[in-house]
């Protein structure tokens, strides 16, 4: 009888703990995974540039040398302080060195390549004083391959700083703009598909 009661008590305690965890889950989640926006309210939030961009923003991501990636920033003005960038992906932090390119308000930062589809937590520090001035998190969804072509407006690059050694990221396929040959359209009808059986078995 005692054993039964003990088991019931243990069961009830486990359930109570689970119930409390349910109620507290959002709080626990908030504590364990603090929202990036709450980390430092004074730091400027970087976004992708749009036509109304007024602060530091990212124009594009692109491929640089083998296994290297370039991040093209647009500055709010030519007087913006010199900076360098650290980017964290999968818990690995890499430094990206930056220099002006193309125009007075464009800066290219080069560092190790991150696979497409991965999250990249970017932090911008002033070269003098190592002060965090901007940050932002991006999903790397596309990479320009023509960034350093003669016509791109961004190159050729001068010296490229050696990135901090890091576990080599897996090379990822890069979106490309295809070079297409012109040909005459062939008028054919839309073929109606023959019904397949839905919900296939293994």
């Amino acid at each position: 009888m005692k054993q039964k009661r003990l088991l019931i008590i243990l069961g009830a305690i486990s359930t109570a703990i689970l119930l409390v965890l349910v109620a507290a889950f959002p709080l626990i989640k908030g504590l364990l995974l603090p929202d990036a926006t709450s980390q430092d309210q004074n730091v400027f939030k970087i976004n992708l540039c749009d036509e109304n961009a007024s602060g530091l923003c990212i124009v594009t991501f692109g491929t640089a040398a083998a296994d290297e990636m370039a991040i093209v920033f647009q500055l709010p003005g030519a007087e913006y302080p010199a900076f360098y960038v650290t980017a964290v992906n999968q818990g690995v932090e890499n430094n990206y060195s930056c220099e002006a390119a193309g125009s007075p308000i464009n800066v290219i930062c080069v560092g190790p390549r991150t696979p497409l589809g991965e999250l990249l937590d970017i932090q911008v520090y002033t070269t003098e004083g190592d002060l965090l001035i901007a940050n932002g998190t991006f999903t790397l969804s596309s990479m320009a391959t023509t960034l350093f072509d003669n016509n791109s407006g961004f190159g050729p690059m001068g010296k490229v700083a050696t990135p901090t050694p890091s576990p080599s990221p897996t090379p990822s396929p890069t979106p490309t703009v295809l070079v297409i040959n012109t040909s005459t359209p062939v008028p054919t009808a839309i073929i109606t598909s023959t019904p397949d059986v839905a919900y296939p078995n293994p």
């Binding site: 359209p185 062939v186 008028p187 054919t188 009808a189 839309i190 073929i191 598909s193």
Partner: peptide, 13 residues
Amino acid sequence: LPNTTDFASTEAH
């Protein structure tokens, strides 16, 4: 659209 649609055709465009 049917997955067999021939986008090269005028009808499809």
